[in-house]
Amino acid sequence: MTLKPCSGTEREPHWAKSSYSSDEGGECVEVATTPGTVLIRDSKNPDGPRLTLAPTTWAAFLPYAAEH
């Protein structure tokens, strides 16, 4: 998976959209990092809920996601 830059405001973290996401619907995921956290959201619902993970949790999840 590669990440494509998404626009953001200064108050918002810089969100990156997965290269597996499309503008035609389906599963769309964006990820942003802040000091000490990794944020995950649905790009179709940017004001909706976000997952907040510790960087170590995100790093442990990535190999699992790559296999599935």
Rank of each mutant, 00 (worst) to 15 (best):
C28H: 02
E24P: 01
S19W: 10
F61A: 12
T52E: 10
H14N: 10
V38Q: 09
P49V: 00
P55A: 14
G25V: 11
V29A: 08
Y20I: 06
A32N: 05
D23P: 03
T57N: 09
T52F: 08
P35S: 11
T56K: 13
T34R: 10
T52P: 00
P55H: 10
P49Y: 03
L51M: 02
F61L: 15
T56N: 13
P35G: 08
S19Q: 09
P49M: 04
P49R: 04
K44C: 13
A59Y: 10
T57E: 14
A16K: 02
E30W: 12
K17V: 02
A16R: 01
T52Y: 00
G48R: 10
P49L: 03
R50S: 06
T52N: 01
K44L: 15
A59T: 15
I40R: 04
W58A: 08
S19A: 13
A32E: 10
E27H: 12
R50N: 08
A60F: 10
P46K: 12
G36D: 11
F61Q: 07
I40K: 02
W58P: 04
E30P: 02
A54F: 05
H14E: 13
P55G: 14
A54E: 06
G48K: 08
A32I: 06
P55V: 07
L51K: 03
A32K: 06
V29D: 06
D23Y: 12
R50G: 00
E30H: 11
A16M: 09
S18Y: 13
A60T: 01
K17E: 13
R41K: 05
D42T: 08
L51E: 03
S21G: 08
D47F: 15
S43L: 04
L39T: 01
E30I: 01
S22T: 08
L53A: 04
H14T: 04
D42Y: 14
L39E: 06
K44Q: 14
G25M: 15
T52G: 02
T57M: 11
P55F: 14
C28G: 12
G25S: 08
T37S: 07
T37P: 00
R41L: 12
S43G: 02
Y20H: 15
S43V: 01
T34M: 09
T57F: 06
V29F: 12
T56S: 15
D23Q: 12
E24I: 07
A16W: 11
H14G: 05
D47W: 14
S43P: 09
V38T: 03
L53I: 00
A16D: 07
W58N: 09
T34L: 09
P55M: 15
D47E: 12
V31C: 09
E24W: 14
L53G: 03
D47I: 11
P49W: 09
N45Y: 15
L51W: 04
S18T: 03
T52K: 01
T34V: 12
D47Y: 12
F61K: 00
P46Q: 13
L51N: 00
P35Q: 11
V31K: 05
E30G: 03
A16L: 04
T57R: 10
A59P: 04
V31T: 00
E27Q: 06
G25A: 13
S43W: 08
R41Y: 09
T56A: 15
E30Q: 10
P55T: 13
V29L: 15
T34P: 02
A54T: 00
S19H: 10
G36L: 01
H14S: 08
D23V: 02
G26V: 14
D23T: 14
A54L: 08
T57H: 07
R50I: 01
T33V: 03
